[in-house]
């Protein structure tokens, strides 16, 4: 019980910090949703909608919007759990400041993850509001889309932060972003069904957490989600997030006690 209370104290640090730097995230949280939906959904949509069988059988903006909602969660999760984590160990050393107080490594880790979760929820809610504004919501289940984004985000942020706690330099981070995050963004069903990919890549896409998240989020917003699929997606993402949290607890403890 106290561990939870401690996690909220570490969370409070991140909120205080965020009060100072929130301007920097305006772009990723509020402006990106509008720009991406306008350019891809509406602009590119005019080309895609001419197709005899558009993806998902709906207007392209309606198809792509939930995908972007979930993909944004992945992007926020992965940037927030790389440099800021390393920075708190190496540059500002704020984790060490916390560890000199009653807060333990697990609470320090959990507090940071809670903060990332908040960032994801805010971004997803903004996305959902914009989607609602242009009539892209097909089912009342859409209200759970931010929760799907949150779960997807944690499936990224927890394992990545667990890794970042072991990293000695930030050189691997841009490689992760460019060789894992960007390809997932482009090929895991955000913009078009993965069935369009060559078979090998298609199966690779099914293995990515983003595909599960996007399929889940899109199913909720468009109201096309089957119970079995929903269960499968949630289970897959939850296992990843839980594993990340368990490993992260270990790597944070090891790094802070070293």
């Amino acid at each position: 019980m106290t561990a939870v209370a401690y996690a909220f104290r570490s969370y409070e640090f991140w909120l205080a910090y965020y009060r100072r730097v929130w301007r920097g995230s305006i772009v990723s949280s509020f402006v990106n949703p509008v720009f991406y939906l306008a350019a891809v959904g509406i602009g590119l949509g005019t080309l895609v909608n001419k197709s005899a069988s558009p993806p998902g059988g709906v207007t392209y903006s309606h198809y792509v919007a939930p995908g972007l909602l979930v993909a944004a969660a992945m992007q926020i999760a992965s940037t927030e759990s790389t440099w800021p984590v390393m920075g708190s160990f190496k540059w500002t050393r704020s984790y060490y400041a916390m560890s000199a107080t009653p807060l333990g490594p697990a609470s320090i880790f959990a507090g940071h993850q809670l903060f990332i979760a908040t960032r994801i929820l805010v971004s997803a809610t903004v996305y959902l509001a914009v989607i609602a504004a242009f009539g892209g919501i097909h089912s009342w289940l859409a209200m759970f889309a931010p929760a799907a984004a949150l779960l997807t985000g944690l499936a990224f942020s927890a394992p990545i932060a667990a890794y970042a706690a072991t990293a000695e330099s930030d050189s691997a981070f841009s490689a992760i972003l460019r060789f894992a995050i960007v390809p997932m963004f482009l090929f895991s069903g955000t913009f078009f069904p993965v069935t369009r990919l060559p078979t090998v890549l298609e199966w690779a896409a099914y293995a990515t957490p983003l595909w599960h998240g996007v399929d889940l989020g899109r199913g909720l917003v468009l109201g096309t989600l089957g119970a079995a699929a929903a269960l499968g997606h949630v289970a897959y993402l939850a296992v990843l997030a839980a594993a990340g949290l368990a490993v992260g607890r270990m790597t944070y403890t090891r790094r802070l006690q070293r």
């Binding site: 590119l44 080309l47 993806p55 960007v182 090929f187 913009f191």
Partner: peptide, 14 residues
């Protein structure tokens, strides 16, 4: 990556 995603993936519909 962008080229393949747009060209192969979306190109089919566009």
């Amino acid at each position: 990556f962008y080229l393949f995603s747009m060209g192969i993936g979306l190109g089919h519909y566009v």
